[in-house]
Write a protein that binds this DNA or RNA. Sequence first.
DNA 1: ATATTATGTGTAACCGGTTACACATCAGGG
DNA 2: CCCTGATGTGTAACCGGTTACACATAATAT
Lengths: 327, 327
Amino acid sequence: MTTIKDVAKKAGVSVATVSRFLNDSGYVSTEAAKAVTAAVEELQYELNPVARSLNTKKSNLIGLILPDITNPFFPELARAVEDVALTYGYTVVLCNSDEDPEKEKNYIETLKKKYIAGFIVTSNQLDAPHYANANVPIVALDRAINEKIPTVSSNNREGAVMGTNALLERGCRNILFLRGPEELNPANDRYEGFMEAIQNSDVHYRVVTSPFHFADSQKIVERALETDPTIDGIFASSDVSAAGALKAASTIGKHVPDDLQIVGFDGVAMGEMLSPGLTTVAQDVYKMGAVATRVLIKQIENKKIDQSFYEVPVKLVIRGTTRSVLE
Amino acid sequence: MTTIKDVAKKAGVSVATVSRFLNDSGYVSTEAAKAVTAAVEELQYELNPVARSLNTKKSNLIGLILPDITNPFFPELARAVEDVALTYGYTVVLCNSDEDPEKEKNYIETLKKKYIAGFIVTSNQLDAPHYANANVPIVALDRAINEKIPTVSSNNREGAVMGTNALLERGCRNILFLRGPEELNPANDRYEGFMEAIQNSDVHYRVVTSPFHFADSQKIVERALETDPTIDGIFASSDVSAAGALKAASTIGKHVPDDLQIVGFDGVAMGEMLSPGLTTVAQDVYKMGAVATRVLIKQIENKKIDQSFYEVPVKLVIRGTTRSVLE
DNA sequence: ATATTATGTGTAACCGGTTACACATCAGGG
DNA sequence: CCCTGATGTGTAACCGGTTACACATAATAT
């Protein structure tokens, strides 16, 4: 392996000059620059990032902390983070936290020892001391941490308004809202959006809490549908729940979208594969990941961040679980 | 930050002794050990992995190279890799290659500079020189690389036999096999398994190549179903294709499973959410990832590897796209 | 009793970079 | 012409560990 010393020798200068040239720090004469360039080329020299890290106390690692990559929401996010990171020369470390504060803490400590450049975090524990005192750039995804930590999320409230209106415009008179877990900020924002839209109408509605879990949602919806057969619209605050609702409709024998219309939230790929295709409020998950990564890198590189809250717009995707709009 | 020197001073020994004690290399007296333990405890000393890496030329990073984490097959794999890696004290770097040899090469080179401990790779380019000459432990996933590189994969052939027999036992007389891309080993193994099983029967069949892509598969199946309305069974060599087939059936107006039975391959979570639920040959993806990681770590730690080819069994999961078995 | 070997420890070189500091040269200002 | 600041470069310390080597002592072998 060729080292900076080899380069210095070949170029006839000192290692300091080589280092200065490579890092564009301090003065280097045109002559010296040329000699170093030639030597680097000839020796195929590549800087050793570990040695550099050791004294700069910096690295180009980015930690991506999320509950579970297996959850259909996260792969696309991870993909975006990795793509953007790559363009900027950063490498992504994957951390599945299972929402466990201890695990999160561990990842943070372990990676800080490696001089990690920063973290992108999806967590509910964002006010935990290991974040507040992490002393390393952090960007929160999807769920706000605290004021000091920039956050990227979808416009959940507005999305929920759009989703609700979609059902309203299509003639639903009795809407079931499947709200997500109360400890999740996005779920709460969606709930607010739903309430805002529904209360501006004269339509009957009911709210039931349901985890973002297929089989559980299915059961909950089956029960609701049996209890109240007049339900003609379901707004689920996640696609997985919506898929559960769709399945429930099919087992109960309700025809979608004729007897019952369903709107989901998330826009995961699976929605398209269902029959009928799932109408949903799609988040631009890729964009969220990309924005978060750019914001993080800005922070890392000490550039000013213009805002501390980034909202990515959502989009209503109409597919087969809803009918055409009433005139 | 407390360093090994601080510990040495506090314990009244030299840094060499501290290092020896911490690494369990060389002789250390009970007395010295005690003193060091106490000092470590008191100073909350934690070894700096970067400094260590610099002279051992080793790290505890594992690179996970896969085509695209967004592909529903991979998140669970990644999860398994990360879980096992964590238990052994390794950290996982995520690399999306898009099957691009240049990107793969880049990841390998970039990470080798960081003294990465090893790679887990899913790729078709496994015979490329950057793998053969990587000079770093590698385990191939799902697709064989070359003889020197241990491989973990599902028993694709046998799975295909199981899937085909499932259709046969349920009375199909005209089966459409959606075979995957010819450049994929697993797809070829599944094809072989299908051929083996179908040729032992007197059932009519047809083979059509279809990418592992939802919309494309849907179109291909729609066309096939229109061309030959007597098709009463489809075996798709991926769940995504099977989902496309199911959708095609629904647009064409074929009732599943009464008019048409469908079996997929993979066992991704989405299969359960479809209506009817997808009967499929499920791979134990988590297990594949876990095995691969353990094999890799064995290699890294210079332990003997007993085999160079690990096959993880598959399982037939019967759901709603198939009928009950004929007596 | 002496030769070996095992046990135990410290010094200092080394991993491959970065950077503080000292020093030299040169141009422009007063 | 001298002073000052900008330009340019090298030496050596440093980042925080590991480890070869030298050396000392205790235990065992001969």
